[in-house]
């Protein structure tokens, strides 16, 4: 096992990078970060639509969330994989196909996290803002969302772990990421699957568990700062 790490650590870490696309663990983390950054604004819009008064937008966002939650992520990846080139007119590459699929899918899940945050915020905040003469948009941007983002930060962080885990499915359309790198090493060595998949699994575990633990620690801290006892 140490021998494999010694020979292939750079490949596991960045893939074929200088001579090819960035891959390996760096590719996985890059993909997950881009996805989080792009999905967050989308999910905030969906959450506002879900909690808003406008029936039309409530209906639209409800359908988006439930369709995304009811469809396997692989299905969405293949939709993006086959429809992406048709919509954009050219091939956009597996990496960006995966970004599109992840943003579509994760926006729905992140929206549910943010919606829960909006709904758990005492309504007095909105009423007070209204009494002070804030418009509905200003109330949302200046009063509600900052508190919601702060309170749901731990939940967003654990959703980031889900995103990291989901990037591994990019393997099926050939995205250069960590799982892809490991299976390439596996097809070079052929006789060492136990060691290679242990390295792959344990590395994923170390990365994801770090974020999971951070999320738990923040949850306790944020809970305490508001005088709420940790559950």
């Amino acid at each position: 096992m140490l021998e494999i790490i010694n020979d292939y650590w750079l490949f596991f870490l960045i893939g074929q990078y200088p001579h090819g696309p960035l891959g390996g663990l760096a590719g996985t983390l890059l993909l997950a970060t881009i996805c989080l950054i792009l999905a967050l604004p989308c999910s905030i819009l969906i959450a506002i639509g879900r909690t808003g008064k406008n029936r039309f937008w409530r209906g639209v966002t409800f359908v988006i969330v439930y369709v995304m939650r009811g469809t396997p992520f692989l299905m969405i990846i293949f939709w993006a994989h086959f429809l992406g080139p048709i919509i954009f007119g050219t091939s956009i590459g597996a990496f960006w196909v995966m970004v599109i699929a992840l943003v579509l899918y994760e926006s729905a899940y992140l929206a549910e996290v943010i919606r829960a945050g909006i709904e758990s915020l005492p309504y007095g905040q909105t009423e007070a803002a209204k009494a002070m003469g804030f418009s509905r948009t200003k109330t949302m941007i200046l009063i509600v969302l900052p508190q919601v983002m702060y309170n749901s930060f731990p939940a967003l962080l654990s959703q980031f772990v889900s995103i990291i885990k989901e990037t591994s499915l990019g393997f099926v359309i050939g995205v250069h990421e960590f799982t892809f790198a490991a299976s390439q090493v596996n097809s070079i060595l052929l006789v060492k699957p136990v060691e290679i998949y242990l390295i792959l699994g344990l590395t994923f575990f170390i990365v994801c568990f770090t974020f999971t633990s951070a999320a738990r620690w923040l949850e306790r801290r944020i809970g305490k700062s508001q005088g709420v006892l940790p559950a």
Binding site: K165, S168, T179, L198, F204
Partner: peptide, 19 residues
């Protein structure tokens, strides 16, 4: 439980299938 929840399912399936 920590192990199973912090490793992608695809990786677990591959581990079961190949290793």
């Amino acid at each position: 439980i920590e192990l199973a929840r912090n490793i992608p399912l695809l990786v677990q399936i591959m581990f079961w299938y190949f290793a």
